[in-house]
Design a protein around this nucleic acid. Structure first.
Lengths: 224, 224
DNA sequence: GAACATCATTTCGTATCCAATGGTCGGCGA
DNA sequence: TCGCCGACCATTGGATACGAAATGATGTTC
């Protein structure tokens, strides 16, 4: 889970459920960049009226994953190569701060990270791409959370969600997945040494691989 | 203006007007951290129904300036010293990226920045604190925008707004204001030399002064 | 004093209605 | 054929009225 929701999820309101459902639709590519999001359709799908849907859409607009034009409606945000690069620039800047703030980890914490990372490998056998993406996020954010910089981690979460419609194509081939797990292991090793500088460097390289894949996937459509 | 709204502001929707009005109330300390925001009250004040108000509140919640608890309502976010430090940590990280991306400025651009900075001085004579704050923001964001990293600058804008309820007490005494203008001049000089490293260092020091003032003003209420 | 029932307030959500906007489509004239 | 124009229509923006559910406070009982 990317968000900071630690509460026992009492009973979610319609707005919260709508937000989660739209996020899920984005992850599953049921909604793709540029696509218009009609309020009535969503409301019918969720079995609620338009009011909670509109609030959910406003939340996602503020997060940057949707764009809104008055009297026209909401659409999934399209990011060109330059804008996507800016999102990754922000990720690098904030993730670096978080990693630098990491304390010396306990054996338990290191074990926990290892477990989460190996869980990614287990997901490789299944065809479930969503599971891999989720496991990957779980690993990264478990690490980030150990910094104690909750507000910064929340912000990083927003940035991850923002690039999610573009990122989901990335972990498809098994070669890429194997590399991801390998790079995570190196980070854990560096963390065991308490070498945060190395962790930052590894994470930068790790992230650059994603960006490289993405740029390749995007080709070079300048605006469109 | 902090936001990226360059369009001729055709005719704003009720939601947009509500967002702006609430922001204004925060700047003017008509709403203070911890204070509850009642939907009906706001709706009456703005002369609209609760629907657009609720969407506006959702926007501001996503921005981090309001907190929402289901069935209880919205309240102005209270940041303790640690959380405020995190906001400034993010500001430093992102503003550094933006400043490093600044190109060599043209004479026109330098002149524009000087004009904006001197405008702060002019505001000193008036008692209008809101005017000073606005002029200060205008200077900073004019500089940021020259980087061309619009998404990053938008994000920095959100961070500024997030600390706004705490920042407004800062520029009250004329001594502080004189120092601000002086420090801005140094930045312009460094920009004229194209010395972005110096600009970053100056901005860090500049920001640290604010943080120091804020910490002093906050005392040390750990949680409240 | 602690556990429990009651109640007013506020929020959450629905249903229904109307206004305003933007796009579509067909006709019309140059 | 091209471009303009106006009618039509789908969608969004917003209001109003109403009901349901949750919360916090109050009062009651043991």
């Amino acid at each position: 889970m990317v968000s900071a929701e630690t509460e026992p999820a009492r009973r979610a309101t319609s707005v919260q459920r709508a937000v989660e459902e739209i996020r899920r639709m984005l992850r599953s590519r049921e909604l793709v960049p540029g696509q218009q999001v009609r309020q009535e359709t969503l409301a019918a799908r969720l079995g609620v009226s338009r009011i909670p849907v509109r609030e959910a859409l406003k939340t996602l607009e503020a997060e940057g994953v949707l764009r809104h034009e008055p009297h026209v409606g909401y659409a999934v945000a399209r990011l060109n190569a330059d804008e996507l690069a800016q999102v990754y620039l922000m990720r690098r800047a904030l993730e670096t701060e978080v990693l630098r703030a990491l304390p010396r980890l306990t054996a338990d914490q290191l074990r926990e990270l290892t477990t989460l990372n190996e869980a990614i490998t287990e997901q490789v056998d299944r065809v479930d791409v969503a599971g891999i993406v989720a496991a990957n996020q779980a690993f990264h954010f478990a690490m980030f959370r150990l910094s104690g910089l909750d507000l910064v981690v929340d912000e990083i979460g927003r940035l991850w969600r923002r690039s999610e419609p573009y990122r989901t194509v990335h972990l498809y081939d098994s070669g890429g997945r194997a590399r991801v797990v390998r790079e995570h292991r190196k980070m854990i090793t560096a963390l065991r040494r308490g070498d945060t500088g190395a962790v930052v460097a590894l994470m930068d390289a790790h992230r650059d691989h994603t960006v490289a894949d993405l740029s390749a996937a995007l080709g070079l459509p300048p605006r469109a």
